[in-house]
Design a protein around this nucleic acid. Structure first.
Lengths: 191, 191
DNA sequence: ATCATTTTTTGATCTACATCAAATCAGTTT
DNA sequence: AAACTGATTTGATGTAGATCAAAAAATGAT
């Protein structure tokens, strides 16, 4: 796990010393308790977060009022509702912490200024999107389309060892797009 | 429909005249017949294409040898296997034309040079990814997770009027993640 | 420890969609 | 036009996973 913001940033794409310093001052270090909402649907996503410790879930609320998880962010992941962030339009999803968490955040407006000002920061941002976003999200589509519930579960726990101790069965089931009952039966080896 | 490459590029993000000219010379105009493969799985995706006329499908071949469509690109869309392109690793999917098509292409290496050379081109590329990629792909996940087969079909034909005349039932069914038989029954109003 | 609340498990039944098999339709070739 | 080919439709049956209901287990509060 990476502790320092500088390390997180430089691992994505190496910035010149002077640019790095200017970037760093635009980030804020934050701590929030379990259940805190980073984003509520209907509001634009004004921040991009780097989580250094903790866990969050992204979810929609469907017409029947049921919450459906679309994503988990554990520890060192980037957190953002990309669609809402890039267009600064009301978010469709909400983002809620499921553990006490620590993170760094940067505001949309500050990011735009840095992108316009520094060529190297624009290249950094491209790498960020490529590394942490594109691959993951295309994988998710393939999983939903090709794998059955049991395989989706196995893949999830392979990639996130320990997730079962940190995220409730109901939350995991919702991410896998199955009911709690079905996940319980998968775990019990009955499916 | 946009015919000129210049118009396509400038609509994404306005480039300085001199940069635009340098960008334009890095694109090639191409025409390919129906059934041509832009990309075969196993090979890295070396190009990014702007389709100006025609249609393509993106598909995986699963363990049982069945082809599963993941995406359609009709007329003015960007075509690329993003995961393979950004990492220059072997692609998991193939891209095949389903109509005689016209397009412009730029090579990965040329794109990288332009990104490093011109700040404005890096900003252009960020906009490209934001506009044509992020929104679409997150929508697709939500659709697969929340909508049943009939609603996914209705949404597809609402967003792509005329797709039923251009893409075969089997190809559409595969994209919707249902069988041909089920799609036929949906169309007949029996589901 | 006890009670209350939430989370997980178990069982019975139901449903959307798959699978398999065969028939029909459309477009091409001879 | 007849014959061949591929695309679409129809019918019968099977199954993964949903839904509904209730029990059991875990977690937390007094």
């Amino acid at each position: 796990m990476k502790e320092s913001l500088e390390e997180i940033i430089q691992t994505i794409y190496l910035l010149p010393e002077q640019v790095l310093e200017e970037v760093l001052v635009n980030f804020q270090h934050l701590e929030y308790p379990k259940n805190y909402f980073l984003l509520k649907s209907g509001k634009p996503c004004k921040h991009l977060w780097f989580m250094t410790k903790g866990a969050a879930r992204h979810f929609y609320t469907n017409e029947q009022g049921k919450e459906m998880n679309t994503w988990f962010s554990l520890d060192t992941q980037i957190i953002v509702d990309t669609t809402s962030f890039v267009k600064q339009e009301p978010a469709h999803e909400s983002i809620q912490l499921i553990e006490d968490s620590e993170m760094y955040s940067i505001e949309y407006a500050a990011l735009q200024v840095l992108l316009q000002k520094h060529h190297s920061f624009a290249l950094w941002f491209i790498k960020l999107v490529e590394l942490h976003y594109v691959a993951q999200i295309e994988d998710r589509i393939a999983d939903l389309q090709f794998l059955d519930a049991k395989k989706r579960y196995q893949k999830l726990i392979n990639l996130n060892s320990g997730i079962t101790n940190r995220v409730s069965l109901g939350n995991i089931a919702s991410y896998l797009n199955i009911t709690q009952e079905t996940l319980s039966r998968i775990r019990a080896g009955k499916l």
